[in-house]
Nucleic acid binder design. Structure first.
Lengths: 177, 177
DNA sequence: GGCCGCATGTAACACGTTACATGATTGG
DNA sequence: CCAATCATGTAACGTGTTACATGCGGCC
């Protein structure tokens, strides 16, 4: 009855959305995600699915006509309840708090670099973020064209995050540059 | 000669900044951080410090007059080089990419909730983020008053991130609400 | 029939977390 | 002087990662 991780909850969510499905179908969802929180590695998904079945959040039946005995997973009532509980506020404080940012982490120690190098740091990272921004804008617009409301919003979230990081980086450059 | 983690690099950074110091002094830095990427748990710091010493990025000497034989750690030339290499572009792609966001992750599955519950989700999460924003603005201003340029910028980064999340959440509410 | 990609796993590993153990120091 | 806190670790654990192994199916 241990608490589920976000990955496990997301697996429940995928099974909820894509109906009864095989572990690989779940994997593909993570593998295809344009803003991935997880790699979707087999070593994460298959064990997660098994844990969820053991805790009765998923139930499985053999896929008919599959010699390998591949299993098809369905969300149980308990699984649905767990998924809902994950979504219903209050969210855990860690979910609300500012998330770690590798660039911010680095900034703490930027003074190890000489001022020339620091300037280079700012311009290179800025360049990288601008590039990212373009990619994210593209995948946002792609999702929009496909009328996928959820995917559009997710992409939009990533886009706004990157935009904020870029704005922040520029402030930092003006401050320290 | 394995690649160092971000935590290990940050440890090098702390030793660089705070001069020769004990593991506990390093720990305190992480424990006190207002926007923590790591808990600063002993079980993370002490092993990291040992690994860094074994790889010759840190060197230690006994603290004089300490009966426990507590060790004082100094950055070696190799350690300084590793720290610089971590900071000098190009940064790894994962550092530039959009970072995971637990709220965004949840949004993917928001349709499990009925529309009343969805509205409640948006208003509660919005309330939470507004609260966070106030906290972060406060700690930003505190850092500013103390004239700590780096801490100010870090706090500013967290602030802008939360602001972006909030703006995004409101867009999402208008879209799905 | 042979090859290649799909699908289903498993194994070893790394790293950070919580919880625990223990000695030193300090405050009341 | 006793308790609480500081300081230094260690142990067990969970979870996700990469890399590997293997069997099936379709294609040429």
């Amino acid at each position: 009855m241990a608490d589920l991780t976000d990955l496990e909850h997301a697996v429940l969510g995928v099974v909820w959305r894509d109906g009864p499905c095989t572990p690989y179908a779940i994997r593909r969802h993570f593998l295809a995600s344009p803003s991935p929180s997880w790699s979707g590695s087999a070593g994460a998904i298959y064990p997660a699915v098994r844990r969820l079945e053991q805790q009765n959040f998923l139930s499985s039946s053999r896929t008919k006509g599959d010699r390998r005995g591949a299993r098809c997973y369905t969300l149980t009532a308990a699984g649905r309840a767990a998924l809902r509980a994950w979504l219903i506020p209050p969210l855990p404080p860690a979910a609300m708090a500012a998330q770690p940012d590798p660039i911010r982490t680095r900034l703490f120690f930027l003074n190890v670099l000489a001022s020339t190098e620091r300037r280079r740091f700012f311009s290179e990272v800025e360049r990288g973020l601008v590039e990212r921004l373009a990619l994210e804008r593209a995948s946002w617009e792609a999702a929009r064209r496909e009328d996928d409301a959820i995917e559009t919003l997710a992409a939009r979230g990533a886009l706004l995050q990157t935009r904020a990081r870029l704005a922040w980086l520029r402030e930092a450059r003006n401050e320290l540059g």
